[in-house]
């Protein structure tokens, strides 16, 4: 599967390169990019998203042959940066680095900016969610957790950024297993780790970056929400194995404001393919507990569309959807 994938993208890359060359040659305007490109990361420096795009930016810069500057535009669950990116000129000098919050933030009514306000360039990474339990909980495996949750509905506490990805993943688990959790608001992975280590919450959605705490016996990984077991944590079962069709990962990519010229989009896409293929990027992603998952413009567009529908569905079921 992966080999086929790369072959596909290689061909794709050639086609895109050829097309973009032709287009650039045809247009009389100066070649893009002739000045620094601003990459808007809609979260604070040092966060999960920032950690993924920091090592990516220099690689993109290398293949774009132009300086790429990260601008952290944080606030209101990422939507301040999203709005800033949407309002930027559609000339390819402002690139937006979102994750799945673009869907949940729209449906829960945090913002009225939608993923369709942007043109997708490429998807670069996917971070699978792992159900993580506090050391102060009695459960050793999923079965005990499920039985306990059935015995005391609405009493097991889950730390989550309400209305965002970390709640959506656990809500999928709830729905599949027919159980009910109690959600406590903890925005961001770092505060959730603090609370779960101290036993102030029972469960949370985390990822492979927390592996060392599990090895130290400070946390318990209950199950991973990926298709297959992860070689980094081979002992942790997938939700699928346990009989629940729950697959959830947070994916990140690049977008540009709608209406950016075709040639510019193609140039960016070409640079993105090359950057995502760099071994250095793969290495840093492994350290972040993240898989490199590359999708080209078309693939990413389809992915966004499917993902958006999924988020709408979950949002409706959770009663989080805002009427508009």
């Amino acid at each position: 599967m992966p080999s086929l994938h790369t072959k596909e993208t290689k061909t794709m890359k050639r086609i895109i390169a050829a097309v973009s060359c032709a287009l650039v040659a045809a247009s009389a305007s100066a070649a893009y990019p002739d000045r620094p490109v601003k990459l808007i990361v809609p979260w604070a420096a040092g966060g999960d998203t920032d950690n993924i795009f920091r090592p990516f930016a220099p690689l993109l810069q290398k293949h774009l042959a132009q300086t790429v500057v990260i601008a952290n535009v944080g606030g209101a669950s990422g939507t301040v940066g999203e709005r800033e990116a949407k309002n930027a000129p559609a000339d390819g000098y402002t690139v937006f680095a979102p994750h799945d919050f673009v869907h949940s933030a729209y449906y829960t009514g945090v913002t009225d900016v939608r993923y369709t306000d942007f043109d997708p360039i490429c998807m670069i990474s996917s971070t699978p969610s792992v159900i993580t339990a506090s050391p102060k909980t009695p459960w050793k495996a999923w079965a005990q957790l499920q039985a306990d949750a059935k015995a005391r509905p609405g009493q097991i506490t889950v730390g989550a950024s309400l209305g965002s990805t970390s709640q959506f993943s656990m809500a999928l688990v709830e729905k599949a297993a027919g159980i009910k959790f109690k959600y406590i608001p903890y925005d961001g992975l770092a505060p959730r780790m603090n609370a779960i280590l101290g036993g102030h919450i029972d469960l949370t959605d985390s990822n492979l970056t927390q592996k060392s705490k599990v090895q130290a016996g400070l946390l318990k990984f209950i199950a991973i929400m990926s298709e297959k077991r992860n070689p980094e944590i081979p002992d942790v079962p997938t939700m699928k194995e346990l009989g629940f069709n729950v697959v959830y990962a947070v994916s990140r990519g690049l977008m540009v404001p709608k209406g950016t010229p075709e040639a510019v989009q193609a140039t960016l896409a070409t640079a993105c393919v090359a950057a995502a293929k760099e071994p250095a990027f793969a290495n840093s992603m492994t350290l972040q507990g993240t898989e490199v998952r590359f999708l080209d413009r078309k693939g990413y567009a389809q992915f966004l569309k499917d993902n958006d529908a999924l988020y709408k569905e979950i949002s409706d079921e959770l009663g989080l959807t805002k009427k508009r």
Binding site: A44, A45, G46, G47, D50, N51, R54, P55, A190, P191, M193, N194, L197, T209, Q210, K211, S212, K213, Q215, A216, L218, N283, S284, L287, Q288
Partner: peptide, 26 residues
């Protein structure tokens, strides 16, 4: 803990993870 106390240490934590170091109990 691998928990940043403020914005400055949050950036340092980011730098550590980029270099493949996961601060924490271990």
């Amino acid at each position: 803990f691998g928990i940043p106390g403020d914005a400055v240490t949050a950036v340092m934590l980011g730098a550590m993870t980029i270099h493949g170091i996961q601060p924490g109990p271990l």
